[in-house]
Design a protein around this nucleic acid. Structure first.
Lengths: 107, 107
DNA sequence: ACATATATCTTGCTATACAAGGTACTAAAT
DNA sequence: ATTTAGTACCTTGTATAGCAAGATATATGT
């Protein structure tokens, strides 16, 4: 899978998942991995950044299956960033597809 | 416009345009700019890379309106890379949209 | 001579993803 | 008891690609 395509998009995916419910990091890796390749070395720094930018808050919760889980919860800032990012994403892909599809008639 | 989203995608756009006809760099900037923000500081290094990777060849042609133009022409390698990149792009955006749209019912 | 549009390219910077590794807890198998 | 495997967190160093800002040079009009 093309690594470059993911730049910036994983942030969008994480925020979108967090809109549904709170996730912990390891769980996000598993959930996103159903659709996209993603590694832990990517997600944890990303989550740290989202927290430092106040898009999410965190809380710890113990687990029966291993060490405590750090859950991530979307803030209202995070929600509005998500909305904006989502719009940008759809607009961006439309623009790209306009460039590609204008020339796809003979593909 | 989100800079990160463009990572890797501009290469795809350039190759897609070159499938239609030969372009020179400045012309590519103008053409792509109809849909996406792109700067010359991005396109020229990208074109140099495409050439070094043998996805394109170049030739010079004089112009009446300014200095000589360097035209870029797709190689057969470039064509197969384009085909692959295009497939990856559509698969990638589908995957992302699956993550986003599974949770958009109440947007 | 000067400004504008055309056309090329380079330098230094930034952002994000990844591989590879480390830490630690729990439960099951040896 | 010890090891293994699964869960769960994190960090370090590297690579890549885009951008702003600038340099260079040609052609045309003022």
């Amino acid at each position: 899978m093309n690594i470059q395509f993911k730049k910036g998009v994983l942030e969008l995916c994480v925020l979108a998942l967090l809109e549904e419910k709170d996730y912990y990091g390891y769980e996000l890796v598993n959930e996103i991995s159903k659709n996209l390749d993603i590694s832990e070395g990517t997600i944890y720094p990303l989550l740290a950044r989202l927290r430092s930018e106040k898009y999410v808050t965190t809380y710890l919760k113990e687990s029966q299956e291993g060490p405590p889980r750090k859950y991530y919860e979307l803030t209202s800032t995070g929600k509005s960033v998500l909305k904006e990012l989502k719009e940008e994403w759809f607009q961006f892909t439309d623009s790209v597809n306009r460039i590609l599809k204008g020339r796809m008639l003979n593909d």
